[in-house]
Amino acid sequence: MSTDRPLADAGDAALVSAAALGDRAAFEVVVHRYGPMLYRYARRMLANEQDVADAVQETFVAAWRQLDTFRGQSSLKTWLFSICARKIVDSYRVKRAVPIDDLALQTHPSTGPDDDPFAHASSTEFLTALERALEELPPRQRAAWVLRQIEDMTFPQIGDILGLTPDTARGHHFRATRTLRERLRRWK
C-alpha cells in the first residue's frame, strides 16, 4: 500500500488486496473497522460472552484464510457477516443460544436537572422485555431483525448473510417485527 495514505483511510478493496498479499496491518484495519459490528451482532445471537468472542475470532480467522476467495461480488461487510452467521450456526449445533444485553440498546441515564426516574425505569423495563422477546424468536427471525434494526442493513445484504433471498429475509424481519410488536404492545 502507498505510504502517503494511512491504512485506516483505505477503502475495503485496497485493504483486502493488501491483506491477501500478507499485509497484516491492512487486515488489522479490517478487524478494527468491522469487529465491533460483528461483535454486536454475535452478542444478540449467542448466549454467553465466550461464545460471542469465539464466533467473532473464528470469523476473522476464517476471513484471513479465505481472503483469496473474496471476489468482491458483495461488500466486505456482507462477506464478513455471512462468515459470522455461519460461525453462529455452528455454535447453535452445540447449544441453544440466548442473546444478552447489548450496548446498542442500553439507555444512559441523564445527569441533568430534568432526570425522570419513571422514564428511566420504564425504558429499562422496556429494554429488558425486548431482550426477553428477542430471545424467544427463532434464530433467523432474530438475526433478520437485529441486522435490519441494529446494524441498519438492507434486505439483500441480510439475505446474503443468512443465505436467503431478499424477500425471504424481508419475511423473517416482518414476522419478527410482528411478534415483537405483539409481545411489547404495552409500551405502545
Rank of each mutant, 00 (worst) to 15 (best):
V16E: 13
E131Y: 09
D12C: 14
A143I: 05
P156R: 09
G163E: 13
T78F: 02
Q73F: 06
R132Y: 06
A47I: 03
D90K: 04
F126I: 07
F81R: 08
F155V: 09
A13E: 15
R170K: 10
S2P: 11
A169I: 11
L127K: 03
L80V: 03
R132S: 10
D115N: 01
R71F: 08
E136C: 07
G112L: 09
R178P: 02
W64E: 05
M153D: 01
F60G: 07
G11H: 10
D4G: 13
G112D: 13
Q57M: 03
G171S: 14
V52F: 03
E182I: 06
D114E: 15
C84D: 01
M37V: 00
E49C: 00
V61F: 10
P113S: 12
P166W: 12
G22W: 14
R65L: 10
A63T: 05
T165Q: 13
G22F: 15
D51F: 02
C84Y: 01
G171C: 09
V56D: 06
R185C: 02
A121Q: 08
P156S: 03
R170M: 08
W145K: 06
F174V: 05
R33D: 04
A55Y: 10
C84K: 03
M153H: 01
A129P: 08
Q73V: 02
Y34P: 02
A144M: 08
E136V: 00
T111Y: 14
P36N: 04
D4P: 09
C84Q: 06
I88Q: 06
D9P: 00
P117V: 11
D23F: 11
I158V: 15
Q57Y: 09
T107I: 04
M45Y: 08
R71I: 01
L7E: 07
R181E: 14
A97L: 09
V98A: 12
A169N: 04
K87S: 02
H108M: 12
W187S: 04
A25K: 11
P117K: 08
D115P: 00
T59S: 12
P138I: 05
T179P: 03
A26E: 11
A143C: 08
R86Q: 11
D101S: 12
Y34D: 09
T107C: 03
I158S: 08
L134G: 05
V61P: 00
F174I: 00
A8C: 08
S75I: 04
S82W: 09
F118Y: 15
Y34N: 07
A121N: 04
P139G: 11
R148W: 03
D23V: 00
L46E: 03
T165D: 14
E136L: 08
P166E: 10
T177Y: 05
M45W: 03
R142P: 09
A97G: 14
E131H: 13
R65H: 12
V52R: 10
A143E: 08
A47M: 00
A85Q: 01
D116N: 12
A10I: 08
K87A: 02
D160Y: 15
P109V: 12
T128G: 15
S2V: 09
P138A: 15
D23A: 06
F174W: 07
A14S: 07
A63R: 04
L137K: 13
A97H: 11
I150G: 07
D4L: 11
T168V: 14
A13F: 12
R175H: 13
P139V: 11
S91T: 12
